[in-house]
Design a binder for these strands. Structure first.
Lengths: 193, 193
DNA sequence: CCAATTACGCTACTTGAGTTGCGGAATTCG
DNA sequence: CGAATTCCGCAACTCAAGTAGCGTAATTGG
């Protein structure tokens, strides 16, 4: 069907794997496109034919690194949300702050890359929204709770601490903040238990 | 007292002014050290003798750009906090997202620069903390309110929206979120009015 | 088999960040 | 004044991101 020489299907996998390894090794520093190309046994130009900038390459590597921590729906919306928030906090602690910050900066630099990253977050937020709506339907959260605002209230302070203030994120902190958000934004359950 | 040739005191002012102008003009892109040096009539080496990296230079320029929106204490802690949060939201809207994101990334890249920036935020947070404590003392906020957590709840979602999700920040959104934080984290006033 | 087509590798290039070395200018102390 | 000291400008350099041109390999259609 397609006329010319087919793309080497192994290139993408090899490159992303090498890129991820380099990021884990030396973090943001020590990540050069030349090194990725050399280690993956690919010409730099080939690399640029698939990922238009270094930032795109980093983003691709990080996207595959994001362990998909699934969002469980046990029927207790509050407990599930607290758990999910704790998971996110753990992820933010584990992944170097620098990597998160770089990703954010990349997203701001390139519109297309920003859309790509926002797409990633949106998928995860979508699942959380549905969980919140089910919880609302069950009467575990105040009716009229805006899912987006609740998510912002739960997750926003975490990113703020990691990216801006640098304050530590303890599990106690997360729990306290989640309780506050659930009582403030989500209000009291109308039909307690 | 000091022996050798004194530093040209006008250099810093000129450079920071030029840097700020360049940032306003072309945003993050189009900001090159060479261009700053050339426009300020200073050798690039001189520039690097004062600011160790380009990031430091950008940070210095932005720091002076930060219009010090004062935090007023009218005696009504809740109203003052809502107002301050609206001011911050306005600032986040005005300054290009890219600039904020770059600053965050810079802070993550260089420890020293990160400390410098965190120092900036800390100063402003300190003033807010004191306002919250006065409000608590007046009984306008639940006693035992943790100032840091309240600030996180107020401001965190804003940065989260700007940096991560890209969702817009309307005044209505800010007000709703502030109300929720003030009822959730700060609880009800023990001595209403 | 042959032409068109597409992917790949290689070399060389441009641009901007950051460094190095040196000579000259300004200032203080003796 | 002269020596020590510190700042400045200049030119040349290294390094990494990203680009351009060209030759070649692989594949499909005729």
């Amino acid at each position: 069907m397609t006329r010319g020489r087919p793309r080497d299907a192994t290139v993408a996998d090899r490159v992303v794997a090498v890129a991820g390894a380099l990021l884990r090794e030396g973090g943001y520093a020590g990540f050069t496109v030349d090194e990725v190309a050399s280690r993956a046994g690919v010409a730099k130009t080939t690399l640029y034919r698939r990922w238009p900038t270094r930032d795109h390459l980093v983003a691709a590597a990080v996207a595959t690194m994001l362990a998909e921590t699934p969002l469980r729906d046990t029927g207790d919306a509050r407990a599930d949300l607290v758990r999910a928030t704790l998971d996110i906090a753990a992820g933010l602690r584990a992944q170097t702050r620098a990597l998160i910050a770089e990703l954010v900066a990349y997203g701001a630099r390139h519109d297309d890359l920003g859309s790509f990253l926002r797409e990633l977050w949106t998928q995860r937020r979508q699942a959380a929204s549905e969980l919140i709506e089910r919880g609302t339907a069950r009467g575990q959260l105040r009716s009229g709770t805006d899912p987006a605002m609740l998510i912002d209230a739960l997750v926003g302070p975490l990113y703020y601490r990691v990216l801006v203030t640098g304050d530590p994120i303890t599990d106690d902190y997360v729990r306290a903040m989640a309780d506050a958000a659930l009582s403030g934004v989500a209000g009291q359950a109308e039909v307690p238990e």
